[in-house]
């Protein structure tokens, strides 16, 4: 089915991962410093999933995201300026300051929104996939949800309908081992969420979510199947969330050990991938350093843009509650 990623694709995925990592590190620091209002849920540690999947998608393919949504938007091609402006609550943000981190979206990129409600994305993605099939437009929807969300009724309903209607959708469970602050073993009796796929009449696949090439290959197969009319796949990516459910060490809760975090960081998705790119002579250390520097420069520009942007005018408060012809 899907071929190995070529060198350009590998470099593309690397860049997407690095963009997510620096965006999130910077955002987390600014949140903890009180420079970003509200709450952020950071994607650090899970970058290989967004990058390995989104590199297969066109702007016409849709995704639904989660409360941990920055990484998905960045990997889908999100604009740093508009993202930072939104996190700052500015008028130039993706949502004109109406949504913030948890509702960030880019409809032109088919990014149908982060979502503040756990498990709310899959039914919406099923609707997008339904529309794709209805219009026979060849587009695929991908929905991201966590191990915690996999216990929500809405996810079961969506998965059942995806299987029943044989929709062009990939259901991606980012299993980071925790539903907020509760370990997976304390919130479900199974280890692999993909085991549930049989109950929805779709294949279930488990992949190492810290290995972007493994994600790329598994996602490619699932997306090809969806696009060619073969129906949905439940793709479970085993991963880890470096920071707390909210922020970096926002609440200082002792729900997991530092040793566990250190153990996962030994398999950091970017470190692993960079070692491989270097070994295979696809990118030199200098090439990779240049990517990091370029991304950091883009972030500086974006933060400046967000800082310089105006707050939304209070007169816009009631705009867009309704569509007005």
């Amino acid at each position: 089915m899907t071929s190995q990623p070529n060198d350009d694709t590998l470099r593309d995925m690397h860049r997407r991962m690095v963009r997510i990592r620096h965006f999130e590190e910077t955002a987390g620091k600014m949140m903890e410093d009180g420079k970003i209002p509200g709450a952020l849920h950071l994607y650090v540690g899970q970058e290989a999933i967004a990058a390995g999947i989104m590199v297969h998608l066109a702007d016409t393919d849709q995704i639904t995201s989660t409360h941990r949504g920055h990484g998905h938007l960045i990997a889908k091609g999100g604009d740093f300026n508009r993202m930072y402006a939104e996190l700052f609550g500015k008028a130039t943000g993706y949502c004109k300051g109406k949504g913030g981190s948890m509702h960030i979206c880019d409809m032109d990129l088919g990014m149908l929104g982060a979502n503040g409600i756990v498990g709310a994305g899959p039914p919406i993605a099923v609707g997008a996939a339904f529309a794709n099939k209805f219009k026979d437009n060849g587009a695929v929807a991908v929905t991201f949800f966590g191990d915690g969300a996999s216990n929500e009724g809405s996810v079961h309903e969506a998965a059942n309908m995806a299987g029943l209607f044989k929709l062009p959708i990939v259901m991606v469970c980012e299993n980071n081992g925790y539903g907020e602050y509760t370990a997976q073993k304390n919130h479900q009796a199974i280890v692999d969420v993909a085991d549930r796929a049989a109950g929805y009449g779709m294949p279930g696949v488990v992949v190492d979510g810290m290995d972007v090439v493994a994600v790329y290959e598994a996602a490619g197969e699932a997306i090809d199947r969806a696009r060619s009319g073969g129906g949905p796949t439940l793709l479970e990516c085993k991963t880890y969330r470096y920071y707390d459910h909210v922020g970096v060490r926002g609440m200082g809760l002792s729900y997991r050990t530092d040793e566990e975090v250190m153990e996962w960081k030994k398999r950091d998705p970017i470190d692993l991938f960079e070692a491989r790119l270097s070994e295979q002579d696809i990118m030199s250390k200098d090439d990779m350093a240049a990517v990091h520097e370029t991304v950091k420069g883009e972030l500086d520009v974006a933060i400046q843009f967000a800082n310089d942007s105006p707050m939304p005018d209070p007169s816009t408060l009631l705009d867009d509650v309704y569509y007005v012809a």
Partner: peptide, 23 residues
């Protein structure tokens, strides 16, 4: 005809409406 899945049905409508259908 849909399954008896009200959350799924309304969600389907929301997603399809957001992507160009008129459910």
């Amino acid at each position: 005809d849909t399954p008896i899945s009200e959350a799924g049905i309304i969600g389907l409508g929301v997603g399809a409406a957001a992507t160009g259908c008129r459910p």
